[in-house]
Amino acid sequence: MSEVCLKVNKLKTSFSTPYGKVTAVNGLDLVLHRGEVLGLVGESGCGKSVSALSILGLINSPGVIESGQILFDGKDLLQLNNDELRKIRGKKISMIFQEPTTALNPVYKVGDQIAEAIMLHQKVGYKIALKRTLELLSLVGITSPEIRMKSYPYQLSGGMCQRVMIAMAFSCKPEILIADEPTTALDVTIQAQILSIIQKMKEIDKTAVMLISHDLGIISENADRLMIMYLGKVMETGKVSDIFNNPLHPYTRGLLGSIPKRGTHRKYNKLISIPGTVPSLINMPNGCAINNRCQYAVPGLCNKKEPDLIKYEGTHYVRCWKYQGWDNE
């Protein structure tokens, strides 16, 4: 594949709570290539969003990035001070969020909020910034942008606000876009539109996209590669086609099983749900993170020792004892 633009090594982010320390991201390794879409999938609380916020240094106290490296542009972002980081945020790496309506400041016009980013990073005046804002707004498919840019966020629908967010995110032609559940809060009909806008904008600037979602359907249609996360760890990663054709991890199989397939008759395609619920990050199980919910778990092994993420074939990696010798399937 093409050149690497972001590399994350052994990232560990934790939060201190009154009930003890919670490690939300535990040793994450990640590589992002120029122009690709990487999907990050998992149930809520698995550390997808925290990973994304860690990359931009947006973890607020009581959260702390404990260790790891985030290599971008030849620099480790974790070693940069706030001022140096700011020059990257919004300019080289930008981000859009789950709730577009609350992600915009309610007391400013949306056009001004986009223009603010442009003025900041491109050192241009207000007039030029507004002109560029106008172009961006029509690029993301907002009709009559001259009027819309003078609206306040509450006057726009959720989908419209997300378009504004996308316009803002792409305003400085970033190298990376992190999209944290960009369509979760939106109507199903709007979801596809938003995703196709992201695809379109990404093509223009050859931006790498990190698409975070709990929805495997969205990922399968939009991502090139994907990572399945559970309790702060990557369980399986590889090309979308590899994982969908040959899911290895029992957890991945469970997730795939819970999407109704199109075209097949319901009767013959029973929905599988993963038994149990996600354990709390405070009482992390010993051994493999998912052993208590896994029907293949081997007592004495899976609940004692944690498997490593190992190569299955090519770019397909999995974290499961099943593929490390004990199972002669």
Partner: peptide
Amino acid sequence: LRSDYIRTAKAKGLKD
């Protein structure tokens, strides 16, 4: 300061 739009402002790269 805990709200989403402040996070957006930070993600934009604005000074504190």
